[in-house]
């Protein structure tokens, strides 16, 4: 009897989550290397004894849009953008994390770190220390970085077979969460640039309007169902 109400509610719950995700995308419109997220909905069939099937909405998972954001020049040597599919490797207290945010700093000892103070890793998995006597940092397109003098090393650039499995952790970090990282070749590092967020404002605004309208119509459904029940209650006793 109340199935219509439950179906309406399942839609409203899913829409609220969709709204939360849209809000997060829009809040991160100017976040460096942010990847926008979209929810994936599916029909959830409930087997009714009478033979009629009822379908609820279920938010099943989410999809990360992995397209490269707009790359803008900042003119700072330690701003690195990745053009192509790949991640920088960063050593955090909780283990190795992957990020596309190339806004790096030098710490007081000359190590290259992220904004959170975690160390950038080179090909061998070691941290990278610069020489103060040679402050001109040059990063080549293939990720080779000069350490001063004749020494150089190469940044560790990794990719994943299925990067949808990566878990977002905030700070632009992705947790591999069991997924296997493999070295990537043939992508380009652009020095003095940062990758912008790939949130598409128009898409997000349109989806927000859609969410709002669907939410209202689900509400209408609930109202109609409510009216019907009221009517039943009022009219049933006078039937005999």
């Amino acid at each position: 009897m109340e199935n219509a109400i439950y179906i309406g509610l399942s839609q409203q719950m899913a829409l609220r989550r969709h709204m939360d995700i849209t809000a997060n995308n829009l809040a991160n419109m100017t976040t460096t290397a942010f990847k926008s997220v979209a929810p994936v909905f599916q029909e959830f069939l409930s087997d009714e004894k009478q033979g009629t099937e009822i379908s609820f909405v279920q938010d099943y998972g989410m999809y990360h849009d992995k397209s490269v954001g707009q790359i803008t020049g900042t003119g700072r040597p330690l701003d690195l953008a990745i053009s192509g599919d790949g991640f920088f490797s960063v050593q955090t207290d909780a283990g190795v994390r992957y990020t596309r945010n190339g806004n790096f700093k030098l710490d007081a000892e000359g190590f290259i770190t992220t904004n959170s103070g975690d160390f950038l890793l080179d090909e061998t998995g070691a941290t990278i220390q610069m020489d103060l006597a040679n402050p001109d940092i040059e990063v080549a397109a293939d990720g080779t970085i000069n350490l001063g003098g004749q020494q150089s090393t190469k940044l560790e650039l990794m990719k994943f077979e299925n990067d949808q499995l990566l878990k977002q952790e905030g700070n632009g970090y992705f947790n591999p969460d069991g997924a296997e990282a493999e070295p990537v070749e043939g992508i380009k590092i652009l020095q003095g640039s940062l990758e912008g967020s790939n949130v598409n404002a128009i898409l997000e605004m349109t989806s927000m309007i859609e969410i709002m309208r669907s939410y209202t119509s689900a509400q209408k459904l609930l109202d109609a169902e409510h009216d019907m029940q009221m009517k039943t209650i009022e009219e049933l006793p006078s039937m005999n």
Partner: peptide, 10 residues
């Protein structure tokens, strides 16, 4: 295959 993680802002 991919769970639901909802970010809470910037």
């Amino acid at each position: 295959p991919s769970g639901i993680q909802i970010g809470v802002g910037v």
